[in-house]
């Protein structure tokens, strides 16, 4: 039987890695992170939108015409979409993640965001 020693064998890995893998990986990874961030913003925007719609609906049901523009009674005075977009765009990634985690825990909202 041949002698065996772990030290003689060494620590080299006998696996092949595609050429240039480690050179290209950081770019690919950063690309994926940006995509993930954009996706989270969209999902969070959708969750917030669902909340806004629910709040609006509740307002209309319970308070009747209280939310209506007095000069133009057929339209609602508050543009939720504009306010929401402005609000989302000013949030940092960390705040978005926090907000998203909060809304993700809400079953009634997550029901709508199945992909």
């Amino acid at each position: 039987m041949k002698d065996f020693d772990l030290i003689d064998i060494g620590k080299q890995m006998p696996y092949r890695v595609p050429e240039g893998f480690f050179k290209q990986f950081p770019d690919r990874m950063m690309e994926r992170i940006r995509a993930e961030r954009a996706r989270r913003r969209r999902r969070w925007g959708f969750s917030l939108g669902a909340t806004a719609v629910a709040a609006l609906f509740a307002g209309v049901v319970f308070f009747g015409g209280m939310g209506r523009d007095t000069e133009n009674p057929d339209t609602l005075s508050v543009s939720f979409a504009d306010k929401m977009n402005a609000y989302i765009s000013q949030l940092s990634d960390e705040e978005l993640v926090e907000q998203f985690d909060y809304y993700a825990a809400d079953v009634t909202l997550t029901l709508y965001e199945e992909e």
């Binding site: 006998p14 696996y15 092949r16």
Partner: peptide, 23 residues
């Protein structure tokens, strides 16, 4: 499993086989 994927620049056949066997 990709134990067959040994690098071409591996020092020698014997050590290559030992590395694969260790894995």
């Amino acid at each position: 499993e990709s134990l067959a994927d040994v690098p071409d620049e591996s020092p020698d056949d014997d050590n290559r086989e030992r590395l694969a066997l260790l894995q």
